[in-house]
Write a protein that binds this DNA or RNA. Structure first.
Lengths: 255, 255
DNA sequence: GTGATTATCGTCAGAGAGACGACTAAGATC
DNA sequence: GATCTTAGTCGTCTCTCTGACGATAATCAC
């Protein structure tokens, strides 16, 4: 840092890209927007945009999130990598991508953020519904993926960013209470279990899951009410407790 | 991304900062360099520097690492956040810091990388030995920390970056075999245990530790030889095995 | 009511961790 | 050389947690 003339620094563009995940219909889904212009015109991409010179990175991510989804998200001062949005969505920094050729137009460094949100009404992208969608992650990475265009699924390196975000989410719900970020403010143990099942793509034993989550101090707080919105016997409603780390963690089944 | 004229993007400076950790004398230490110029002249700071327009982020981190320590480190193509340097050092992306005022001169976004290295000879910073040192992490964060200058320990937000890097290292050796990155190519179980003890700042039971690490498939490979360099009964020498994730993890003692 | 569905409680066996005793094999000291 | 010290290695016991799975409870659809 001392070898350079600070007034002659190499100029970069800095963007934020958002991996917005939610659970819809037992499936982990990611928010994608359709690009209206070159490069990658017509491709699906992660929502995102340029960071302004007077805003922080998390702040820019919150702003883009609000613009693309209407989700209000708290922008945190400084460069703290983790935050919690008031609407229940969770926002945290994922990683930064800066391959010199990742954008053919210029040198762009993109700071990716991961957003975990409860199931939302259908997306809007600046009011244009046809240009945004919730894409099931399985479709994008499973064997049944329909390759698009010249074999590239997403614009730029967004396929890699999305994969990294999905992997982060999958591993993070193991040892943190973040799975509750996919749930509405009040939820049942069964609903939380279906979140785990959707994110991990596995089936969990309802009895062991119930014992585990209700037995972990601070994970769940009984909210008093019950609901039958899932059918069957009425289930207790819970809110997310104060605990953020789970010790011992939830164990993702092998294989 | 579609709302802006790409030719009029806001210009940022992008730097990499390195959190280089090693274990020396039973203590976790971080590499610091002394700043020779304003701002924060005379303060200790993390090594780092500007990213060039034609190099990737990990590549820039490797280059800076080599310049500051002589450690050769493999630069990875693209934006892959994790890599392994040939000299045995581990390099991975940590987080990105971009508060608008984090550098008083201009808008700088810094991508921090975490480097875990075996104990190295004393550092050199471009040949000037007095301007680089291994600082015990305990001195920087413990109660006994001697506040420097106007109460700020490190230049810029490097105190926060270092704290994040230390926390990443502490948690990552729980569920990965990365602790071996602090060891020479061949090491004993006791040496590995002392790494855990230094990084976590705890004392571990040698017998349980031995059972755990030798019983985890793929963690350690017997290299055949023995050594008495620690005194006492000769110990078997091991190399790092192929496993990268430990399941079940090493457990960091409570409290 | 009957059956389907979901929630919740209980039991049992096995894996793994913490505590700690016991033994081994080298160098250091007398 | 006898003894001490240091570290390494093997075992044992107990407790906790998990996975497998039986049993019961409370609602809805018919």
């Amino acid at each position: 840092m001392s070898r350079y003339d600070p007034s002659a620094f190499p100029p970069f563009a800095v963007t934020v890209d958002l991996v917005v995940l939610t659970v819809r219909d037992h499936e982990l889904c990611a928010l994608l927007v359709k690009r209206g212009e070159a490069p990658f015109q017509g491709y699906w991409a992660l929502p995102g945009g340029f960071v302004r010179l007077d805003e922080g990175l998390a702040e820019a991510a919150s702003r883009e999130l609000a613009e693309e989804t209407g989700l209000r998200a708290q922008s945190l001062p400084g460069s703290l990598p983790v935050g919690r949005a008031p609407a229940g969505a969770h926002l945290e920094q994922l990683a930064t991508y800066g391959h010199p050729q990742r954008d053919p137009r210029m040198r762009v460094v993109s700071v990716a953020y991961l957003v975990l949100a409860p199931d939302l009404p259908s997306p809007r992208a600046g009011g244009d519904a046809s240009s945004a969608r919730w894409a099931p992650v399985r479709e994008l990475f499973g064997e049944e993926r329909e390759e698009r265009n010249d074999g590239v699924l997403l614009a730029f390196d967004h396929g890699q960013i999305l994969a990294d975000g999905v992997e982060r989410a999958r591993s993070k719900i193991e040892y943190s209470s973040l799975a509750t970020a996919f749930c509405p403010p009040e939820f049942t143990v069964g609903e939380l279990r279906r979140v785990y099942e959707a994110v991990w793509g596995v089936v969990l034993d309802p009895r062991n899951f119930h014992r585990k989550v209700t037995g972990t101090p601070g994970f769940l707080l009984p909210s008093g009410g019950t609901t039958t919105r899932q059918g069957g016997r009425p289930a207790q409603l819970f809110k997310a407790g104060g605990a953020t780390v789970l010790n011992p963690p939830m164990l993702r089944p092998e294989a």
